[in-house]
Amino acid sequence: MCEDCTCGEEIQKNSIYLPEVAELVSKKKMTDIDSFFEFELKGHSLGHLPGQFAEISIPGIGEAPISISSPPSDDNKFEMVIRNIGSVTNAIHSLNVGDKVGIRGPFGTSFPMNNLRGKNLLFVTGGIGLVPARSAILYALQNRADYKDITILFGCKEPGQRLFTDEIEEWKNRNDITFLETVDTCNGEKWEGNVGVITTLLPKLKNIDPLETYAIVVGPPIMYKYVIMSLHDMDFSDKKIIVSLERRMKCGVGKCGHCQMDNIYVCQDGAVFYYDDIKHLKEAL
């Protein structure tokens, strides 16, 4: 017991801010600023659902909320793609295999994969929005027979920012799913694919039945409004649109107030929502 602590062991047992330890087991560069990380917990699995996030911490630097990009698994390993944009993510990027991090979570709601069984899935992902969506995409592919048509759209700013390029090649070559991608600009790089914002891919889709399809939309804040407008044009109802929203998740446990959106704590009540449930919120989109 230390001088600052008069609560003794009890707080060690019950603190919602105490991270557990995960080990970095593999690491791979994806873009100039994004890297793939695989972590392993000791003795148990993370127990997450597709679309959830966790707080990763480096003692001395701080904590950052990071989406989990692997599908649910009994395995003790889980995956993340982390963009190097702050002190914590920078420190994570400089870790070596075998190094350890703190982790709290998983937190938040998940893509309702059970409710989506027997339906078509349309993933509309922008930039690092692909990271949480991948958890649901891989889950759906693992349980391919449970879902009807699966369509994945991915857009990013420029070719150099594409994520999971090996997997994208696989997805392109599969004949049981449709995959389309686009970049906002080529930026001088070699690129023979689509150029334009993500919504330019939607008209290319044929035979989307809005009554039998759920759209799962994950991307930067600016993207939602335009994608939802396009989905409305395709006669999607708001109940068939699922979004995952970004906010500043600091504590992950619905206390610190940073992620609040109207009356909702996004870290607990989100980040995954049916659009129909949040469209009336003034601060949502």
């Binding site: 001395g60 630097i61 701080g62 002190s87 914590v88 920078n90 420190a91």
Partner: peptide, 8 residues
């Protein structure tokens, strides 16, 4: 300290 730790 922050610079030594590599944080902003």
């Amino acid at each position: 300290k922050a610079i030594a730790l590599g944080k902003a």
